[in-house]
């Protein structure tokens, strides 16, 4: 069955209906891309799925469970990993401590006041860092990482909760072409091996068409097309509102 199902999501900001009835489903191990022009409602949609926004109407289900409007921290404990368009990590900690903190949070061990934290979950943290290719930088402060490395650290943080679903908002924004491909290949590997469902937004068409199994196209708050990359690419409506000469 689907990992995530959204039905009839709507969100209005003042007079503007940002999302006007969106339904979607993500399957285990699937890479699903959500694309569309700026202002089409991608971020709003994403934030409703990630718990940052509560939908005005509609239902979000994670497996069998209704998680509509649930706070991000509860979703995290239910297996939703998240990366952000503007990278967010813990800048005052080392790379390893970042992951340790995420592991402590996931294990519900944040409310411990005595034993030193940097001796906890060490092996697990190192394993996660190896998984994303950051093991050699474990002792570096997160605040000085290069952009692409920050993105990979974010991925490790998102993986700390053994997610069933990864929500990635523009995972490769601001990266060079070679880095983009490497990161998406890594994500794809994780999706395949562990059956993690991945939903991502992206503006780089090489990334979308090269790595997504399925593509959803959003325009003015509605889904205007969905299908395989090839189908979406050939859709005249998608070409008109979004792809332009890029296809």
């Amino acid at each position: 069955m689907s990992v995530l199902v959204a039905e009839g999501l709507r969100k209005r900001f003042g007079a503007n209906e940002a999302v006007a009835g969106v339904s979607l489903a993500v399957e285990p191990g699937e890479m699903l891309a959500l694309i569309g022009p700026n202002g089409a409602g991608k971020s709003t949609c994403f934030n409703m799925l990630g718990g940052q926004l509560r939908p005005d109407e509609g239902v979000v289900r994670l497996g069998e469970r209704d998680v509509t409007g649930m706070a991000p921290r509860h979703l995290a404990h239910l297996g939703v990993g998240r990366t952000f368009q503007i990278t967010a990590s813990f800048a005052s900690m080392t790379v390893r401590e970042n992951v340790q903190t995420a592991l402590l949070a996931q294990a519900r061990q944040a409310w411990r006041f005595w034993r030193a934290a940097d001796a906890q979950h060490v092996a697990q943290a190192e394993a996660l860092l190896s998984r994303v290719g950051m093991a050699s930088q474990a002792a570096r402060p997160a605040g000085v990482l290069a952009y692409g490395d920050l993105k990979r650290l974010e991925l490790a943080l998102a993986l700390a909760g053994k997610p069933v679903l990864l929500l990635m908002d523009e995972p490769t924004a601001g990266m060079a072409p070679a880095e983009r491909a490497a990161l998406m290949a890594l994500v794809r590997g994780i999706a395949r091996e562990q059956g993690v469902a991945v939903l991502f937004t992206e503006h780089d068409m090489d990334v979308v068409f090269g790595h997504a199994d399925r593509v959803l196209v959003l325009d003015r708050g509605r889904l205007i097309a969905q299908g395989t990359p090839a189908e979406v690419r050939a859709d005249p409506r998608v070409r008109a509102v979004y792809l332009g000469t890029a296809a």
Binding site: G36, P37, N38, E170, A173, G174, H203, M205, A240, V241, Y242, L243, G244, T245, A246, A247
Partner: peptide
């Protein structure tokens, strides 16, 4: 950066 292909056009 970060713009839809039609806007890039």
């Amino acid at each position: 950066e970060g713009l839809a292909p039609v806007i890039v056009d």
